[in-house]
Amino acid sequence: MLEYFILIGLVLFAGCWILSPILKSNSTDSAIILKTDEALGQLEYEKKEAYAAIRELEFDENMGKISKEDFGALKKQYMLDAVHYLKKIDELQENKSKAKALGEEEIIDQIEKEISSLRHGGSSKQKDVFCVQCGTKSPPNRRFCSSCGAKI
Protein backbone atom coordinates (compact mmCIF):
# COMPACT_ATOMS: atom_id res chain seq x y z
CA MET A 1 0.00 0.00 0.00
CA LEU A 2 2.82 2.32 0.91
CA GLU A 3 4.35 2.00 -2.53
CA TYR A 4 1.12 3.21 -4.12
CA PHE A 5 1.23 6.34 -2.01
CA ILE A 6 4.82 6.90 -3.00
CA LEU A 7 3.97 6.46 -6.68
CA ILE A 8 0.97 8.76 -6.49
CA GLY A 9 3.14 11.28 -4.66
CA LEU A 10 5.78 11.07 -7.37
CA VAL A 11 3.22 11.48 -10.14
CA LEU A 12 1.73 14.52 -8.41
CA PHE A 13 5.14 16.01 -7.84
CA ALA A 14 6.13 15.45 -11.47
CA GLY A 15 2.84 16.94 -12.63
CA CYS A 16 3.38 20.11 -10.58
CA TRP A 17 6.95 20.39 -11.75
CA ILE A 18 6.00 19.95 -15.39
CA LEU A 19 3.15 22.43 -15.21
CA SER A 20 5.03 25.01 -13.16
CA PRO A 21 6.61 26.84 -16.15
CA ILE A 22 3.19 27.23 -17.74
CA LEU A 23 1.60 28.52 -14.56
CA LYS A 24 4.32 31.11 -14.09
CA SER A 25 2.79 33.79 -16.27
CA ASN A 26 5.78 36.12 -16.49
CA SER A 27 8.33 33.62 -17.78
CA THR A 28 7.59 34.25 -21.41
CA ASP A 29 10.40 33.63 -23.84
CA SER A 30 13.18 32.69 -21.49
CA ALA A 31 13.42 29.22 -22.97
CA ILE A 32 13.83 30.50 -26.50
CA ILE A 33 16.99 32.41 -27.23
CA LEU A 34 16.82 35.24 -29.70
CA LYS A 35 17.54 34.40 -33.29
CA THR A 36 20.48 36.81 -33.66
CA ASP A 37 22.40 35.06 -30.89
CA GLU A 38 22.01 31.75 -32.65
CA ALA A 39 23.01 33.29 -35.96
CA LEU A 40 26.06 34.74 -34.27
CA GLY A 41 27.00 31.34 -32.88
CA GLN A 42 26.59 29.85 -36.32
CA LEU A 43 28.89 32.48 -37.88
CA GLU A 44 31.48 32.04 -35.15
CA TYR A 45 31.45 28.34 -35.91
CA GLU A 46 31.84 28.90 -39.65
CA LYS A 47 34.68 31.32 -38.98
CA LYS A 48 36.41 28.73 -36.83
CA GLU A 49 35.96 26.17 -39.59
CA ALA A 50 37.50 28.53 -42.13
CA TYR A 51 40.47 29.09 -39.80
CA ALA A 52 40.85 25.35 -39.35
CA ALA A 53 40.78 24.90 -43.12
CA ILE A 54 43.57 27.46 -43.55
CA ARG A 55 45.64 25.82 -40.86
CA GLU A 56 45.15 22.42 -42.40
CA LEU A 57 46.02 23.78 -45.82
CA GLU A 58 49.26 25.22 -44.51
CA PHE A 59 50.07 21.93 -42.88
CA ASP A 60 49.34 20.03 -46.10
CA GLU A 61 51.61 22.45 -47.92
CA ASN A 62 54.36 21.85 -45.39
CA MET A 63 53.97 18.13 -45.82
CA GLY A 64 54.26 18.56 -49.58
CA LYS A 65 50.78 17.33 -50.45
CA ILE A 66 49.81 20.36 -52.47
CA SER A 67 51.57 22.42 -55.11
CA LYS A 68 52.61 26.03 -54.49
CA GLU A 69 50.21 27.49 -57.07
CA ASP A 70 47.24 25.58 -55.68
CA PHE A 71 48.25 26.53 -52.17
CA GLY A 72 48.22 30.24 -53.03
CA ALA A 73 44.88 30.07 -54.82
CA LEU A 74 43.17 27.94 -52.18
CA LYS A 75 44.47 29.98 -49.30
CA LYS A 76 43.17 33.15 -50.90
CA GLN A 77 39.77 31.50 -51.26
CA TYR A 78 39.66 30.43 -47.60
CA MET A 79 40.86 33.86 -46.51
CA LEU A 80 38.02 35.47 -48.44
CA ASP A 81 35.61 33.05 -46.76
CA ALA A 82 36.93 34.01 -43.35
CA VAL A 83 36.69 37.73 -44.21
CA HIS A 84 33.11 37.18 -45.29
CA TYR A 85 32.16 35.57 -41.98
CA LEU A 86 34.02 38.17 -39.96
CA LYS A 87 32.23 40.97 -41.75
CA LYS A 88 28.89 39.32 -41.12
CA ILE A 89 29.74 38.86 -37.46
CA ASP A 90 30.63 42.54 -37.27
CA GLU A 91 27.39 43.50 -38.95
CA LEU A 92 25.41 41.51 -36.44
CA GLN A 93 27.36 42.79 -33.49
CA GLU A 94 27.02 46.34 -34.65
CA ASN A 95 23.36 46.17 -33.75
CA LYS A 96 24.37 45.36 -30.20
CA SER A 97 27.37 47.61 -29.68
CA LYS A 98 28.70 50.34 -31.92
CA ALA A 99 31.98 48.84 -33.02
CA LYS A 100 34.09 50.37 -35.71
CA ALA A 101 34.12 48.52 -39.02
CA LEU A 102 37.51 47.29 -40.04
CA GLY A 103 38.92 47.43 -43.54
CA GLU A 104 39.61 44.25 -45.43
CA GLU A 105 43.39 44.58 -44.99
CA GLU A 106 43.09 44.87 -41.25
CA ILE A 107 40.76 41.90 -41.09
CA ILE A 108 43.18 39.71 -43.06
CA ASP A 109 45.92 40.86 -40.74
CA GLN A 110 43.87 39.83 -37.75
CA ILE A 111 43.03 36.46 -39.27
CA GLU A 112 46.71 35.76 -39.78
CA LYS A 113 47.43 36.69 -36.20
CA GLU A 114 44.60 34.59 -34.83
CA ILE A 115 45.59 31.54 -36.88
CA SER A 116 49.19 31.91 -35.86
CA SER A 117 48.29 32.16 -32.20
CA LEU A 118 45.98 29.15 -32.57
CA ARG A 119 48.82 27.17 -34.03
CA HIS A 120 50.96 27.91 -31.02
CA GLY A 121 48.22 27.22 -28.56
CA GLY A 122 48.05 30.91 -27.84
CA SER A 123 51.32 30.92 -25.96
CA SER A 124 53.72 32.51 -28.41
CA LYS A 125 54.73 36.13 -28.20
CA GLN A 126 56.99 36.24 -31.24
CA LYS A 127 57.43 39.39 -33.31
CA ASP A 128 55.91 39.99 -36.72
CA VAL A 129 58.15 39.60 -39.76
CA PHE A 130 58.30 41.62 -42.99
CA CYS A 131 58.30 40.36 -46.57
CA VAL A 132 61.56 41.01 -48.42
CA GLN A 133 59.73 41.41 -51.72
CA CYS A 134 56.92 43.80 -50.95
CA GLY A 135 57.46 44.78 -47.34
CA THR A 136 54.09 43.59 -46.05
CA LYS A 137 53.99 42.77 -42.38
CA SER A 138 53.25 39.09 -41.66
CA PRO A 139 52.76 37.17 -38.44
CA PRO A 140 55.70 35.14 -37.11
CA ASN A 141 56.46 31.66 -38.44
CA ARG A 142 54.79 32.45 -41.72
CA ARG A 143 56.62 30.89 -44.63
CA PHE A 144 54.94 32.89 -47.37
CA CYS A 145 53.90 36.49 -47.67
CA SER A 146 50.15 36.90 -47.42
CA SER A 147 50.11 39.69 -49.97
CA CYS A 148 52.55 38.67 -52.73
CA GLY A 149 53.10 34.97 -51.98
CA ALA A 150 56.89 35.27 -51.90
CA LYS A 151 58.83 33.04 -49.52
CA ILE A 152 59.79 34.80 -46.30
Partner: peptide, 22 residues
Protein backbone atom coordinates in the same frame (compact mmCIF):
# COMPACT_ATOMS: atom_id res chain seq x y z
CA UNK B 1 8.18 26.35 -30.45
CA UNK B 2 5.58 26.85 -33.20
CA UNK B 3 3.77 29.42 -31.13
CA UNK B 4 7.12 30.69 -29.74
CA UNK B 5 5.95 30.12 -26.18
CA UNK B 6 8.99 29.63 -23.98
CA UNK B 7 7.04 28.37 -21.00
CA UNK B 8 5.52 25.53 -22.98
CA UNK B 9 8.97 24.46 -24.16
CA UNK B 10 10.23 24.59 -20.59
CA UNK B 11 7.31 22.43 -19.49
CA UNK B 12 8.07 19.92 -22.24
CA UNK B 13 11.67 19.77 -21.08
CA UNK B 14 10.60 19.05 -17.52
CA UNK B 15 8.32 16.33 -18.82
CA UNK B 16 11.28 14.75 -20.65
CA UNK B 17 13.22 14.65 -17.40
CA UNK B 18 10.19 13.13 -15.69
CA UNK B 19 9.92 10.43 -18.37
CA UNK B 20 13.51 9.56 -17.60
CA UNK B 21 12.65 9.39 -13.90
CA UNK B 22 9.65 7.10 -14.34
Amino acid sequence: IRGRKGNLVASAENAAYAVFGF
